[in-house]
């Protein structure tokens, strides 16, 4: 910044809510100096440290990894740590908690319902050989082409932006929403998994993908490029094919056989004993 240029400022309009205080959320304004590279989250810290220590939000990694800082910023759900103020194209930053979730305090939404839906769709590998799953003796076989069928969906950081953007979730608490459905698809397509029939018990009902009408907002706002709308349509294809008996189930990938005709090289030491 050159000496004669005036320091630029940013106006923050933040939605505040105190559960123990007066009933309704209200807007509060703060003006802070703008420095180049300031993210929306940085600005909130400037406010908390210098202006109003009572402001509350969730954040952790400040680098788009942990998924805790999803907020409704200038009309779109986004990660506040991943949003530069310069990219908003406005000197006013309007920050509200993610819609479609109860507000616990200030910018903190209650993500509980989303995780209940997530859990209900068994977002983990399900397969019959529990013994092997608990105490693995080797890897399960999976080619890289097979991995690419679900890898994109596994980048999800559970930031809830997609749920805040979904028009169906805006009225319907029964529908699972984009993130849980994308995760169901992520595990359904994993070749190591055998849980399609178990997840189907939930997916064939109103929790399933049937109330998705492809408004596509989830994919538009997802900060990780997970593309939940694509996952939901692919999930629906499998379920429709299943109903029409066109789906050919494949057995889950087998454990890779240990080669037995290979001798250990003498110069490689034994692995140290397991610590856990």
């Amino acid at each position: 910044m050159t000496a004669d240029s005036k320091p630029k400022t940013v106006l923050y309009r933040v939605l505040r809510f105190e559960p123990e205080g007066s009933s309704n959320p209200r807007w509060q304004e703060y003006t802070i100096p703008y420095t180049s590279g300031l993210t929306v989250l940085d600005g909130l810290w400037v406010i908390k440290e210098g202006v109003d220590p009572s402001l509350v939000w969730r954040s952790s990694c400040r680098m788009g990894i942990c998924g805790s800082c999803g907020m409704f910023i200038n009309g779109l759900p986004r990660l506040s740590c991943n949003t530069q103020i310069s990219e908003l194209g406005s000197s006013t930053v309007e920050v509200a908690p993610l819609p479609n979730f109860d507000i616990l305090r200030d910018l903190v939404p209650d993500l509980g319902p989303m995780f209940d839906h997530h859990q209900a769709l068994s977002p983990f590998i399900l397969r019959p050989d529990r013994e092997e799953l608990e105490k693995p003796t080797a890897e399960y076989y999976q080619s890289s082409a097979e991995m690419e069928r679900y890898l994109q969906f596994s980048y999800c950081i559970k930031c809830a932006s997609c749920i805040a953007a979904c028009p169906t979730v805006a009225t319907d608490p029964v529908y699972s929403g984009p993130m849980p459905l994308a995760q169901a698809q992520r595990y359904n397509t994993d070749t190591r998994d055998d849980g399609f029939d178990i997840r189907k018990l939930a997916l064939r009902g109103p929790q399933g993908p049937w109330r998705c009408h492809f408004a596509g907002e989830c994919s538009r706002v997802c900060p990780k490029g997970v593309d939940p709308a694509k996952a939901i349509q692919l999930l629906r294809r499998d379920l429709v094919a299943d109903y029409l008996r066109l789906r050919r189930p494949t057995p889950p990938a087998a454990v890779v056989e240990k080669p037995d005709d290979i001798a250990r090289r003498p110069d490689i030491p034994e692995a140290p004993p397991a610590t856990v």
Partner: peptide
Amino acid sequence: SRGHPNRLGMRGWLFGGRW
């Protein structure tokens, strides 16, 4: 939850933000 309800409701079908 003791939070403040914040579902967009039918408004969210049409205008939820800059869509």
